[in-house]
């Protein structure tokens, strides 16, 4: 067999498995697999690190209400259903405040001068400071987590929206001026769609910061909720319980991003879909004759 013939034979790299592994999907699966293997090795080597299997077993018992080795039954849904409304209310209020403040800062130089340093202070303050402060102000209960989420997340929405407003194309503004487009229509059809990208960036930041904030506030200042539950396992020095809850927090953010934020973003940006060459060709095929005929029929 000649060398040329041999070189055409499919090797592993060119096989369907090889191609799949080199795809972005394959790269992602490989990274998960490598992480689990590394975790298993570390977990098997150090007793203070639970293995993936021990952690999964814990999560299953916590979610299904199963027994944790005679300690106490799993209470995932009880605590999860306490936390989610706090998080949802906090993020919703933070979003509304952030959008309003961002629009004002982006639109008016006076408001920008007035609030930009204040915004910087809010951005610089870590969520844990707000968690301590709100617990001191409101005591143990639902208020501290909700206010911590609002105070931590709103500045990230505001700063992104403000940046978006300032980035709105001056050409589109001038076009709107030249045609005398009414203010409400400009906000609805020009400004808000123009800042959508910034809005989603702000919202993503807000969700991550807000989720951290609600966990911290519940850790220190609640008598239920997922943060409180994670602390319970931490205080009991149950490693698999603590790591199990950390995994649940991460999975929640992944699911929220994948099932809610990403589809919303795709929907908002459907106009960016790559141009269809068929459609372009179809419209490009319009000739002067058809134009002339319709024009004369005016």
């Amino acid at each position: 067999m000649s060398a040329a013939t041999m070189s055409r034979q499919p090797g592993f790299a060119n096989s369907s498995i090889g191609r799949a592994l080199r795809s972005s999907w394959g790269a992602r699966v490989t990274s998960y697999f490598a992480f689990v293997v590394a975790w298993q090795i570390v977990g098997a080597s150090f007793f203070r690190v639970p293995t993936p299997w021990e952690t999964l077993d814990f999560i299953w018992r916590e979610v299904s209400g199963g027994d944790h080795g005679g300690v106490r039954p799993g209470q995932f849904w009880e605590h999860f259903s306490a936390t989610v409304p706090r998080f949802a209310i906090g993020i919703s209020v933070a979003f509304v405040i952030g959008v309003v403040v961002g629009l004002l800062i982006g639109s008016f130089s006076f408001v920008r001068a007035l609030l930009s340093d204040v915004l910087l202070v809010f951005l610089a303050l870590p969520a844990i400071i707000w968690a301590f402060l709100t617990v001191m102000w409101f005591g143990l209960g639902w208020e501290a987590p909700v206010y911590t989420v609002i105070l931590s997340a709103a500045p990230f929405v505001a700063v992104n929206v403000a940046q978006g407003v300032r980035a709105v194309s001056p050409e589109l503004r001038r076009m709107s001026d030249a045609f005398g487009v009414p203010r409400n229509r400009r906000i609805r059809s020009m400004l808000l769609p123009a800042i959508t990208g910034y809005l989603f960036t702000g919202l993503r930041f807000a969700v991550i910061i807000g989720w951290n904030a609600v966990l911290l506030a519940e850790w220190f200042g609640a008598v239920d909720g997922v943060g409180w539950r994670a602390r319970l396992w931490y205080d009991a020095a149950r490693y698999k319980g603590f790591v199990g809850w950390a995994i649940i927090f991460i999975v929640f953010i992944f699911l929220l991003d994948g099932l809610v934020l990403s589809p919303l973003q795709r929907r908002a940006f459907r106009w960016r879909a790559s141009p269809s060459s068929d459609l372009k060709a179809e419209v490009g095929a319009v000739d002067t004759e058809s134009f002339t005929n319709t024009a004369i029929g005016l």
Binding site: K280, V286, T294, L298
Partner: peptide, 24 residues
Amino acid sequence: SKYLEMVGLGHAHDMYPGQLSGGM
């Protein structure tokens, strides 16, 4: 619609600008 017909784009109502050429 009347003016889009005049410029030969009567069938492009639901297309986004990014789907059109510069001339369109």
